[in-house]
Design a binder for these strands. Structure first.
Lengths: 216, 216
DNA sequence: GCAAATCCGTGACATTTGTTACATAGGCAG
DNA sequence: CTGCCTATGTAACAAATGTCACGGATTTGC
């Protein structure tokens, strides 16, 4: 679909200078993908860098036995550091990116990413800011995995979801949560029950509600 | 200490173009630090980006209770992605960097890092390659922490050390290994004993020898 | 050589997490 | 309503890791 300058301005505000926005309308590729769409799979090659306009993308790492670990989420105006590096070095992806909502994004062709770095100061800033954020995200993931117990991590996961979707009710199964924390369904059920007794959540079928003061 | 062009050329070979090497001799700051020196502490500010010429630097993450998790090592011609991002955004460091050997490095002033990106293609490549490597390192760390059991992680740690120092004998205490894996000394002692029975290592006081075919 | 400090070995037990096995409950198609 | 499919609850047990309490060994400082 053709990109329109006005609409881009709505999304980006004054993040990018006018000339760069103009460029983006020329070479950028607009995409709308439904929930559950795999933007990236381990081993896949990447030919363009996505910038998320709206929606939600889950980035995770999986190991050989099919276990999975949640790394972080990408939301509005986020971009993916892996794709940046992959693009620039023509390497394979090592992560999975799956949309959790209907998501709108722009794909920037690889070759522009480097060029724009020299031409547009705001682009350079954007790229570095992206790297920095992803780095922090990864360090945060490591903190959780390395230092926290499962019950804390589970509660934390729910809080993150809450922040991302800006709500306190999630329609997820225990199984799904188990995958994101690289553990088993039974363990999650057990811990959720525990959290429910402590008054942190309310459980129903296919539905979990965060209660209490999780204003984080 | 004054940097000499010839010596730089020895280290960098043709990684950087001549004009960039020249620049580095002008503004780079040469440093030699002993083993055990803290190049970076959480909360510290960073005013320059280090490039390691030789030696070994351990990068780790620590949490509030003082527990620690090894992230990766930096060796010859490596640079630190955290410092890159930190520099460019004037943020605080969130990691610890400690030399494990006497280490020689060059400090590049922050302001040059961005400028050179536009001026020198080889510098741009270097910066991106650095980001990519650190990203992979972090993902590797996450794989270990999230998916592997402690005994595997311990053996893996020894193998990494072996590769880094290019030897099979380490003068470390169980306590130190325990810190790097964010666990306790007793657990490491137990697992090491186990590995010894399996013929993977030989133990003495303050000393561990990797035996067998770990040619990785 | 002696005392103190450091390092290591180890048993016993607690806690956390993983696994197995099965029961129950809700929703949906026919 | 009935029979299936999926999601959840849960007990019982297994395995992995963490903690405590020691004792003994080696090194270091004096």
């Amino acid at each position: 679909m053709r990109l329109e300058l006005d609409k881009l301005r709505l999304h980006f505000g004054n993040l990018f200078e006018a000339a760069l926005l103009q460029e983006i309308t020329q070479v950028g590729n607009y995409m709308e993908v439904p929930e559950g769409y795999a933007l990236m799979r381990p081993g896949g090659y990447i030919r363009s860098v996505p910038i998320i306009l709206s929606g939600l993308v889950k980035i995770s790492r999986s190991d050989a036995d099919g276990k999975e670990a949640l790394l972080y989420y990408l939301g509005g105006l986020d971009s993916c550091a892996m794709s940046l590096t992959c693009c620039l070095s023509k390497q394979q992806s090592e992560i999975t990116a799956i949309t959790e909502e209907k998501t709108k994004l722009i794909l920037i062709p690889v070759e522009k990413v480097g060029d724009w770095m020299s031409q547009f100061p705001t682009w350079k800033q954007f790229v570095f800011a992206t790297y920095q954020k992803r780095f922090e995200d990864l360090l945060g993931a490591i903190d959780q995995i390395a230092f926290r117990k499962l019950d804390e991590r589970l509660l934390n996961l729910l809080k993150i979801k809450s922040k991302q979707c800006n709500c306190t009710i999630f329609y997820v199964t225990h199984e799904e949560l188990a995958n994101e924390l690289a553990t088993s369904r039974e363990v999650i059920s057990r811990l959720l029950k525990q959290l429910e007794k402590m008054g942190e959540v309310k459980l129903s079928r296919n539905k979990i509600e965060l209660v209490g003061k999780h204003k984080s």
